[in-house]
Design a protein around this nucleic acid. Structure first.
Lengths: 135, 135
DNA sequence: TCCTAAAAGAGAACAGTTCTCATATAAGGA
DNA sequence: TCCTTATATGAGAACTGTTCTCTTTTAGGA
């Protein structure tokens, strides 16, 4: 909690109850939509306006506190995990899991160090790995 | 055009002017939204109902004639390129380009042949390469 | 040519997101 | 601690993209 407050002030953001609970929600939920976040806060903390949630999420993205997740759906999902990682996507449903693999990242870096893409400067490579989760 | 008709009948779909022009639009436009497709058809061919476009695009996806593009935006984009490929995403704007690289695909296949992901069966790996296009 | 299942059209409904503007509040300074 | 003010929030309207409903039209086989 003090941790979350620090993250806000590090970025020069005013500490408000809404911002604290939104950031907490993003950290505790897995790749949530704005609606997931709203429900989480309303049940756990107190009421919050939907507009506030969208605006705060935008601010957090601007400041690099969270990221958007890329999917082929028309709802936006958010991600609080900031270290470089990839995503495992279920081919059946909407389940998404984080996938961290430094060895793979090294292979990709080495590969694109040698093989340049014409007229393009790479900033970040993320894999979408689609498949089936076994239980 | 005869080509497009073949693709429809191969999948057991009735050949209608709407389907022909939607498929043509997806082939001629680069990762279009439904709205891009509607505008293209209205200007080039004739009027078409928006509901028809969405429904036909859905049918095409079901039959494997096109795919959705994954982005972090809340509009869905479609892709007519069916061979396995990756995407270069502009970090500034919405520009997306196809990236085909069989050598890379082989490296990834080999890598994941050795290194299994626990409780997950990979079906397809696509890279999102984010960066800057130079002109 | 006729018949019928399937497709398309029109627009209402819906969901997700953004906008507007009045009110409330965080946080720096007196 | 109390003011002050820039900034944030709330409430709900507006907007955008997508889906749904229901009627009319049409493709394509008999």
């Amino acid at each position: 909690m003090a941790n979350i407050k620090n993250k806000l002030s590090e970025k020069g953001l005013k500490i408000t109850p809404q911002r604290l609970s939104i950031l907490e929600a993003v950290y505790n939920l897995s790749h949530p939509t704005a609606d997931d976040i709203i429900k989480y806060i309303r049940q756990k903390h107190s009421n919050i306006a939907t507009g506030t949630v969208y605006k705060v999420l935008d601010t957090f993205i601007q400041k690099g506190l969270i990221k958007k997740v890329t999917t082929d759906k028309d709802v936006i999902r958010y991600d609080g995990l900031l270290i470089h990682h990839h995503h495992l996507h279920s081919s059946k449903d909407i389940l998404i899991k984080d996938y961290i693999d430094e060895e793979l990242d090294k292979i990709l870096n080495d590969y694109f160090q040698k093989k340049k893409i014409k007229n393009f400067k790479i900033e970040e490579i993320t894999l979408q790995i689609r498949g089936k989760f076994k239980k």
